[in-house]
């Protein structure tokens, strides 16, 4: 039974509304990056902003007012450095106060810091930030859900660079071995790591085939196309099926801000007040371009 956390009929936003929320999420991220003096992992936040929006505002069956409901879908942010994008996406869904995030981010005793911490922030499912930990934990949660006969899903978001960690593939094999159709991985395939572009130093390709070889169902989409994200979510196999699914989301690191896009210097950074305006203008311009 999952009724109490399920989206109700007509409750889910439309694709157009989701796009609007993704824009708001990006603006809020830029504001934080322009006011907080430390580094924000803005590149990987912006590449994942549409995925976060689709998950928290459409896909995940969760109740912001009942965060320990046993029937909730579990979300694990394996690429923990995108924590602030998750905090803001969750705040827009009603989990946290946006003002609380902006006012305390990164400060002493704040619940909101560079990487998500379950000890300080109930509502996140696990403390992550050390890459390669999320998927194994997700396998454990999916196994437990299956064992309890619960119909929830476990969804895990990974960075593509992160999938260089051996633990990711050990977990992928365990997921298939245990026939965990209730497990879904999203990969933010922005084709960048911290210090290099994909294929320059690390051979990821043939990337989807790697997942197929581990026995996963593979869905390949444009990770900035909200309709495609929604469709991928709608088409997920039933949680009681026997094959885990990976949704490989082709994305652009720094998406929406031209001077950040595909720029290794913007894996993490800080915008000053002036560059904040420049970034916001770039974001607006990129929206205009896309609606034309």
């Amino acid at each position: 039974m999952r009724d109490d956390v399920s989206w109700q009929e007509g409750e889910r936003p439309s694709v157009a509304e989701l796009e609007e929320r993704a824009f708001e999420l990006r603006s809020k991220l830029l504001h934080l990056c322009g006011t907080y003096e430390g580094a924000v992992h803005i590149g990987g936040d912006l590449s994942a902003a549409d995925i976060f929006t689709a998950l928290f505002h459409y896909g995940l069956h969760v109740d912001p007012h009942d965060i320990s409901n046993p029937h909730r879908d579990r979300f694990l942010l394996s690429k923990g450095h995108a924590a602030v994008c998750m905090y803001i996406a969750m705040s827009m869904r009603g989990f946290f106060s946006y003002d609380g995030i902006v006012e305390t981010y990164g400060q002493l005793d704040s619940a909101y810091g560079m990487h998500p911490c379950k000890v300080q922030l109930p509502g996140v499912e696990a403390s992550t930030g050390s890459l390669g930990h999320g998927l194994p934990i997700a396998v454990g949660m999916a196994l437990s859900g299956r064992h309890r006969g619960d119909a929830h899903r476990v969804v895990c978001l990974l960075g593509d660079g992160e999938t260089g960690e051996g633990s990711v593939w050990e977990a992928a094999m365990a997921a298939r071995s245990n026939e965990l159709g209730n497990l879904v991985a999203f990969v933010d395939r922005n084709r960048q790591l911290m210090t290099s572009h994909a294929e320059e130093r690390i051979a990821f390709e043939p990337y989807p085939d790697k997942w197929r070889a581990f026995g996963w169902d593979v869905v390949e989409i444009d990770g900035h196309d909200m309709a495609a994200l929604v469709k991928a979510i709608d088409d997920l196999p039933a949680p009681d099926s026997d094959r885990p699914t990976v949704v490989i989301c082709e994305t652009v690191k720094g998406k929406g801000v031209d001077f950040m896009e595909r720029n290794l210097a913007w894996h993490a950074g800080s915008l000053g007040a002036e560059d904040l305006q420049r970034a916001l203008a770039a974001l607006e311009a990129s929206r205009q371009k896309e609606t034309v």
Binding site: G161, G164, G166, L193, M194, S196, I202
Partner: peptide, 28 residues
């Protein structure tokens, strides 16, 4: 280096044959 090579650029450029970035893979 496991993808933490920002300050190793001088070595990497001078001795590309003796520089290895394995990406996110500390064990290997």
């Amino acid at each position: 280096t496991p993808d933490i090579g920002a300050t190793l650029v001088e070595f990497q450029e001078t001795f590309p044959d003796r520089f290895v970035d394995v990406g996110l893979a500390e064990q290997v």
